[in-house]
């Protein structure tokens, strides 16, 4: 996939994150080119989700800098709510607002946070809904949707803000197996359409198919970084081999 340019959308230098005394990310360096799809892998508790949350200011960082389009976004004067409009994020748990219809969920950010024209946003939202086959659910409430449908809406809600980059934090982890596919398909389509994405996932097949680059993290540090072909066929580090072995076993069993 040669779609990405040499333009850095996101750049992270010497990021340090601690919870009290516990160091989660000692010194993290990372960058993403426009149009690139990066998958973060690693055992649970390795700090990959925390890293994603640092990127849009949901976690405070202790040192380092984060640049979006070349601009430092973690300064004291940062208006995070403005920055976050350019960073779409989808979480593991279904995070739709239960008191709003699907359409209201999607429109809230663009209209209230970005101050965009309602009609314009509505057209975009309906187009997106149609693309994922959920246009008929626009007046429904989240409680009337399945887990997979909710996650697809959550993705659209983030997309409708026209973000520079999308972050996915284990979005299929709490879904029933038969619904995982429908969500991953939407993500794969997005990746092919050239969206810049950083994805934390445990779906190895999806990682293979969608990623331009795989980063393996353990104990807050990048252990290995490679193309998916290389990483999955011949991982260099012992820890990555062990990690992949566990998944192979799981796949055989299931």
């Amino acid at each position: 996939m040669a779609k990405q340019s040499n333009e850095k959308v996101l750049e992270v230098r010497h990021l340090n994150k601690k919870y009290g005394e516990t160091v989660v990310l000692p010194d993290f360096n990372f960058e993403v080119q426009r149009g690139e799809v990066v998958v973060l892998l690693g055992p649970s508790g390795c700090g990959k989700s925390t890293f994603l949350r640092c990127l849009n200011g949901l976690e405070e960082i202790q040192a380092g800098e984060i640049k979006l389009n070349g601009q430092i976004i973690n300064a004291d004067a940062t208006k995070w709510h403005v920055v976050r409009q350019k960073i779409g994020m989808v979480f593991q748990s279904y995070d739709l607002f239960p008191h709003m219809t699907i359409l209201e969920n999607i429109l809230l950010g663009p209209i209230k946070a970005q101050g965009r024209d309602r009609l314009e946003v509505l057209q975009q939202a309906e187009k997106l809904l149609e693309r994922v086959g959920l246009l008929d659910k626009k007046e429904a409430y989240p409680s009337q949707l399945s887990g997979g449908q909710k996650q697809r809406i959550a993705i659209i809600r983030a997309l409708c803000m026209n973000p520079e980059i999308m972050l996915f934090d284990e979005v299929t982890a709490s879904l029933d197996p038969e619904m995982v596919r429908e969500v991953l398909d939407v993500m794969l389509e997005l990746a092919q359409a050239g969206m810049t994405m950083v994805i934390v996932t445990h779906e190895m097949g999806f990682a293979k198919a969608a990623a331009d680059r795989v980063i393996f993290i353990d104990q807050g540090q990048i252990i290995e970084e490679a193309t998916p072909e290389l990483f999955f066929t011949s991982p260099k580090s012992e820890r990555a081999k062990k990690f992949l072995n566990i998944f192979k076993f799981n796949e055989q069993v299931s």
Partner: peptide
């Protein structure tokens, strides 16, 4: 917490 974080991630002010 997740509701609050989702609200924040779509760029809402406090």
């Amino acid at each position: 917490k997740i509701q609050i974080e989702s609200g924040l991630s779509i760029g809402l002010t406090r």
